[in-house]
């Protein structure tokens, strides 16, 4: 699975939660919650969806590695590899 595939999948899941935020308008290295204006419930919804989609546990202890769009792409790619 390439970075592009993971990135596309993440963008799709984020679009379900924050359909009003366009990827072009945000800093992909910035804080995910700030950039996409999502709260803890939205974040949990996102993590749940990604866990199902990629068949990953997405443990809470790893949340610090999921703090930006780019960090999440790296995390998902490394776990899927």
């Amino acid at each position: 699975m390439t970075d592009q595939d993971v990135s596309t999948a993440l963008a799709e899941e984020l679009n379900r939660i924050a359909p009003d935020v366009s990827l072009e308008d945000v800093d992909l290295a910035g804080d995910l919650r700030e950039e996409f204006d999502i709260d803890s419930m939205d974040f949990l919804t996102l993590i749940t969806a990604l866990g199902k989609r990629f068949d990953l546990e997405m443990p809470e202890a790893d949340y610090p590695k999921m703090q930006s769009f780019n960090a999440l792409v790296s995390y998902l790619r490394d776990r899927r590899a």
């Binding site: 803890s40 419930m41 949990l44 993590i47 749940t48 866990g51 546990e57 997405m58 443990p59 809470e60 202890a61």
Partner: peptide
């Protein structure tokens, strides 16, 4: 909350709320 969630799948996790 952290201890409860540590071995739970995302759909079963608690929030402080």
């Amino acid at each position: 909350v952290a201890k409860t969630n540590s071995d739970r799948a995302p759909e079963d996790r608690l929030l402080m709320g």
